[in-house]
Simulated scan of single mutants.
Amino acid sequence: MKAEPILFEKERFAAKRLPREEYIDCTFRHCDFTGADLRGCSFVECRFEHCDLSTARWTNATLRDVLFSDSKLLGAAFCDCNPFLWSADFEACRMDFALLNGMRLKKQRFVRCRLQHADFSGADLEGALFDECDLSGAVFENCMLEKADFSTALGYSFDLSANRIRKARFSLPGIRELLERYGIVVEP
């Protein structure tokens, strides 16, 4: 028998260690995790709605079937999380300076997220979706971007020869920006 979902609302975990290490089927709504110590915590089938998780420490944290919605994740070092069965979706999140480098993010979904200056270096983003995302200043170097969808994303610019991009999707305005670094002009 499945336990009842747990709701944490307007809790302040800022700059603290969380009271428990395992959270299953929990919703965190309007909670402040700024600088919180999430090291070793496990979040399974959890939702973070309208939360501030900026600069939280994610070392060895487990994220499995987690949704971040309308949340702030400035400087989030997701690359420090436990990679085993890692799965998270991001909707309408502010993720400037997030660290996702070296991660296996196949079919990862980023929807209406601001990912300015996020670092994806060495990440496997095969089939990833960047739907209406702002990728200004984001770093894509030595990435697997095959079948990734950038067709509604904005602001991305990366070296085509430094990434695997076969069958990646781009829009005409986006491809103009992408080719601009090579001095190529695309006429309408």
Rank of each mutant, 00 (worst) to 15 (best):
C93D: 07
F97S: 06
C143W: 03
A15M: 03
L63H: 11
E132R: 14
A15T: 11
K167A: 05
V185S: 01
R47E: 15
K107G: 03
E187C: 08
K72N: 03
M1L: 11
R109P: 01
D131C: 08
L105K: 08
A118L: 11
N82C: 13
C93T: 03
P5L: 04
F130A: 04
D80Q: 12
A128L: 11
L178T: 02
T34F: 09
L154N: 09
P173L: 13
V44G: 01
C46N: 02
F170R: 09
S161V: 15
Q108V: 03
I165G: 03
E180I: 13
G122R: 03
R181Y: 02
G75D: 04
C113K: 09
A76I: 01
M1E: 04
Y23M: 14
L100C: 08
L154S: 11
E132V: 11
R12L: 06
R104Y: 04
F78S: 07
S42L: 02
E11Y: 08
M103S: 04
R166W: 06
W86L: 10
A153E: 05
L38Y: 05
E141V: 15
P83N: 09
C26P: 11
G183I: 12
G183A: 08
M103I: 14
A14V: 03
C133W: 14
F33A: 04
K167S: 12
G155W: 12
T59E: 15
G137A: 10
F84G: 11
R64C: 04
K107A: 11
L179N: 13
E22F: 06
S151E: 03
G183K: 14
A77P: 02
I6G: 02
R112N: 12
F84K: 15
A162H: 07
M95D: 01
V111D: 06
L63P: 10
T152H: 06
S157C: 15
K10I: 00
L145I: 04
D70M: 01
V66F: 00
G155C: 13
F120L: 11
R104Q: 13
W58F: 09
D134T: 04
E4N: 15
N82Q: 11
F68K: 12
F48E: 07
V186I: 11
A128W: 06
E91I: 00
M95A: 02
A153W: 03
K10E: 13
C26L: 00
A88R: 07
I184E: 00
F78A: 05
C81Y: 03
G102N: 02
L135H: 00
A128N: 07
A56T: 05
R94S: 07
V139L: 12
R166L: 12
A3M: 15
C26F: 04
V186D: 01
F28R: 00
H50A: 14
T152Y: 08
S136D: 08
K167Q: 10
E132S: 15
